[in-house]
Amino acid sequence: MKIQTETVTERGLPLFRMSKHGLFIFLCLLPAIILVSIFTYYPLLKGVIMAFQNYSAYDLMNIRFIGLENFKTIMADIGFKESLVNSFYWVFFSLIPQFFIGFIVALMLRRKFKGRGVYQAFIFFPWAMSGFLIGLIWRWMLNGQGGVINDLLMKLGIIDTAIPFLADPTWAMVSVIVANVWYGITFFAIMILAALQSIPEELFEAAKIDGAGYFQQLFNITVPYILPTLIVTTLLRVIWILNFPDLIYSLTNGGPAGSTHILSTYMLEKIMFGQNYGQAAAVGVIIIFILIFFSIFYLLATKFNKAGDF
């Protein structure tokens, strides 16, 4: 028995010898690898090939390689540029409020109080719903004629006349973002709350003895301790939000006049209404590139070296 040499130390240093456990490792990972290769990477590969083909349902008899033509067509399209800019707004202005409100909520829920369980149950609801349904609900509430949000704003005396939320390009963008914030706060709140609860209580007690105030504790203990979670959660959110067409699809479907399209809904539209799979695939390739570059940059900037631990 060579158990002693085979233990993994607390710091995770590997002492197992590969050869002995090779088969075990292989078998355990096999299902995951097979599934992901066949049903994610194979279609991806096919999709990337399509990006260089004239692949349109209007012209199926004529599928051929056309080099960078799809990319050129897309780059020249105003709609694409618009959705690129929108994607930035969409991610940035969804993320920031989600992060801060989520953080504050988590801070307030850290300590037990009476009814916290019930409260949590209520505020976690949005996360249980689908983007599609959320879009529908908000569309109903934002309805320019007799929508409840206009009615509330007027009752509160904030506005005099109804705002055409979904008919005006700027308001429409605001609307989809607000709905997305509503949806996403919960995710941050859960992740951050979990991280907060893992902070050993002794750390705070020590700080209190040192006379640290609330904000000092927050910035000297809490934030540094949960920083890895914050970094990873934020990166994941950026990726997910950019690739999240469901809500926009059912709330505005990119309208009016493409003013709420982000890259993923623009791509969806290329497929659903343009039936141009080649161009859609080209947009997809661009999305992947953007996200890879962003992730690398982000991880370098935050000096975070555990990219795999998403």
Binding site: N143, G144, Q145, P164, L166, A167, D168, G255, P256, A257
Partner: peptide, 14 residues
């Protein structure tokens, strides 16, 4: 355009 701007619900753009 006139019938939209003067006589239709703003939302009807979509």
């Amino acid at each position: 355009v006139e019938v939209y701007k003067k006589a239709s619900p703003p939302d009807s753009i979509s």
